[in-house]
């Protein structure tokens, strides 16, 4: 299955169920359509979804249509990647970072 097919589309209404009630690691990409760096990191996020299939839940949330979640986590710059472990926020990555940077964060919290 391609990485993009593995991405879970999350909204403010489904955030609690999809992320906060998820056991294990969950990575959520907070993005917007017309954000250039968001477009750069999108294929990296999709690749991570494929590489970590079954080990990390990878999701996306459009901040232009969902404002409660980014407000809750104090997001300003996008893209922002939030990493949750058993429903609790454990790490945050801001900007169009290289894939290895995100992988290192995930590996720190896997196990």
């Amino acid at each position: 299955m391609a990485g993009t097919d593995l991405l879970v589309k999350v909204t403010d209404d489904t955030f609690a169920e999809e992320i906060e009630q998820h056991e294990g690691l969950a990575l959520i990409d907070l993005w917007a359509t017309w954000c250039g760096p968001c477009q750069m990191i999108a294929p990296i996020v999709a690749q991570i979804a494929e590489d970590y299939q079954g080990r990390v839940k990878v999701a996306k949330l459009d901040v232009d249509h969902n404002q409660k979640t980014p407000m809750q986590f104090g997001v300003q710059s996008i893209p922002t990647l939030l990493l949750f472990k058993d429903g609790s926020l454990v790490d945050k990555v801001v900007g169009a970072v290289p894939k290895q940077h995100v992988v290192e964060k995930i590996e720190q919290h896997l196990g």
Partner: peptide, 29 residues
Amino acid sequence: KTVTDAVVTGLALHIDELGRPLCPCNFYP
């Protein structure tokens, strides 16, 4: 080019919606 095109489009949309080219790479409540 897709990076530039996306940002320019986002800025233009904000001119239409808000009257000013607000940065499309931030979240605003």
